[in-house]
Design a protein around this nucleic acid. Structure first.
Length: 498
RNA sequence: GGCCCAAUCGAAUAGUGGUUAGUUCAGCGGGCUCUCAAUCCGCAGGCCGGGGUUCAAUUCCCCGUUGGGCCA
């Protein structure tokens, strides 16, 4: 017997895969994996104005990156296809027809202008407006006449009397008085089904057992429940998961930095870190001190019953911390591959420069940088000296460290020593520098700091000896030389102007 | 404006009718150290408000407030 647990993620391809969507997908995926069910991906692209192929690709790409692979849907198919709503349009008319015939839906000829006028009038009287059912009570003959004339019409669902309630797996029973819902449109004048209608038909035909979606859909649910009932479809279980908000507690959007999954990928966040972070937003296993969960651990522990009911604020600090943890866990070779990708995307290197040497160099870089990384693009942003021909001196570092009395002497001496080293490795370099400090009768730090600024332009960075080794003898010698030249140049300008 | 949902340190959360209300991130202080990190140790900080039920409420109920959502 096949497992009947079927869940779906049904995004609209109107932009990118945002974090909220990714988390909805994740919760569905975790649920399917935990219960041995099927995870369906359906693209709701009936809003042709706003949907485009590019967005579809971005969504698929984002899900794949997060390893949220779907069992049925685009690219993989399945027996309940098609999985693009735009390819399912032929499925809807029969259900519209059924509702019309049974008197559960009716044609409405009211134009938007007429509706607006009546609405304003009602509101002016201090009453709340919902559709006044003018067309529900129209004579059959008149309707036929109008249809024959080709007058524009929509189809409205007739809301029955009573109360509609459903069980939300997170909050228990939720009820709505039907009189609060108006006779909503299920088929637009251009014959396109509306969201609530298409969604119900698709979920029913795809045998979705659990509808797990954002809680912004709670108020759609009673309308959908009524449609299930009117059409005689079995009702799925519903679970409305809380939304993700920005720091200012408003819906996550572009204003809060980027909410797109692709952005984080391109910044060098790791998919396993993203998955872990998103899972922890609104969910906790209850184990103290445990924040890091592997995919398997998440599947094992995840349950809708311990998902919180309130919105969660996206916290970049915590994602950064978590990503750092995962970076430190990763092997250098795979980090190096990601770094090479980033370098290419940002035009720091060209595809022809991607040689085994470059990959090896990047591997050495991540090895000495991974302890201080939140995301890999920081290497490009804050340690560009690894890839640039000439060091850009941080002005403050230059003034405070390199312009100090005696720096030239120190750098020159180290330069001469370094030239003699064939075994240009961290331990050897450390030995030489410390010896030199001893000879000069000063602390090693007095040599280390100027050397760091000379070769990297910065006061902060990885351990000096590792840094020197990774940069290599040639670069180091060159850079110290250039730093010395720059120092004398500055001294000249300072003495002549001062 | 109508309806719906929610509420524990700054953020994510655990938890309970009687607890010193726990943990993770961030913050602060310290150890280590060539800087920055990583790491280790420590500190600070919270049950939205008001009623009720109860011997006892952060916990249960109601109202309010605030936030979010949907519709208009």
């Amino acid at each position: 017997m096949e497992n009947q647990t079927r869940v779906r993620f049904a995004p609209s391809p109107t932009g990118f895969l945002h974090l909220g969507g990714a988390r909805t997908a994740l919760f569905n995926w975790l649920f399917a994996r935990k219960y041995g069910g099927t995870f369906v991906l359906r693209i709701e692209d009936t809003d042709l104005e706003r949907s485009d192929q590019k967005s579809v690709e971005v969504i698929l790409e984002g899900l794949k990156w997060l390893n949220l692979l779907w069992d049925e849907g685009p690219e993989v198919g399945g027996k309940y296809g098609p999985y693009f709503q735009s390819k399912r349009l032929h499925l809807y008319p029969q259900f519209i027809q059924k509702l019309l015939v049974e008197g559960k839906a009716y044609y409405c000829f009211c134009s938007p202008e007429e509706l607006a006028e009546r609405r304003e009038k009602t509101i002016a009287q201090g009453k709340s407006w919902r559709y006044d059912r003018r067309c529900l009570f129209m004579e059959q003959k008149e309707k036929e006449q109008l249809i024959a004339e080709g007058k524009k019409r929509v189809v409205r669902f007739r809301i029955p009397e009573g109360v509609t309630s459903f069980v939300d797996l997170l909050r228990g029973e939720v009820s709505f008085a039907n009189q609060e819902l108006d006779d909503f449109i299920i088929l637009r004048s251009d014959d396109m089904p509306t969201y609530n209608f298409a969604c119900v038909i698709d979920d029913a035909l795809m045998k979705i057992s659990h509808v797990i979606r954002g809680d912004d859909h709670i108020s759609n649910t009673p309308r959908q429940v009524l449609l299930y009932q009117a059409l005689g479809f079995p009702l799925p279980a519903f679970a409305h998961i809380p939304m993700i908000l920005g720091k200012d507690k408003t819906r996550l959007s572009k204003r809060h930095g980027s909410p797109s999954v692709t952005y984080y990928r391109d910044q060098g966040y790791l998919p396993e870190a993203m998955m872990n972070y998103l899972a922890r937003l609104g969910w906790a296993s209850g184990e103290e001190e445990k924040e890091i969960f592997s995919e398997e651990e998440l599947i094992e522990r995840f349950d809708l019953s311990n998902v919180t009911k309130h919105a969660a604020v996206f916290d970049l600090d915590k994602l950064n911390w978590m990503n750092g943890v995962y970076i430190r866990q990763r092997d250098n070779a795979s980090l190096s591959r990601i770094l090479v990708e980033i370098l290419q995307k940002r035009g720091k290197i060209t595809p022809s420069e991607v040689t085994p040497e470059m990959e090896g160099y990047c591997e050495q870089i991540v090895a000495i940088m991974k302890d201080r990384m939140k995301y890999l693009a920081q290497i490009v942003e804050e340690a560009a000296y690894f890839f640039e021909q000439e060091v850009q001196f941080d002005p403050e570092a230059f003034q405070k460290i390199l312009m100090k009395e005696g720096t030239e002497e120190i750098l020159s001496r180290c330069l001469e020593e370094f030239k003699e080293i064939d075994d240009f490795t961290a331990p050897r370099l450390e030995e030489v520098v410390r010896k030199q400090a001893e000879n000069l009768g000063i602390k090693a730090a007095k040599l280390i700091h100027p050397l760091r600024v000379a070769v990297s332009g910065k006061r902060v960075g990885p351990g000096l000896f590792e840094l020197l080794e990774v940069l290599g003898k040639k670069r180091v010698i060159e850079r110290i030389g250039l730093a010395l030249e720059e120092i004398s140049r500055q001294r000249l300008t300072q003495s002549s102007s001062g």
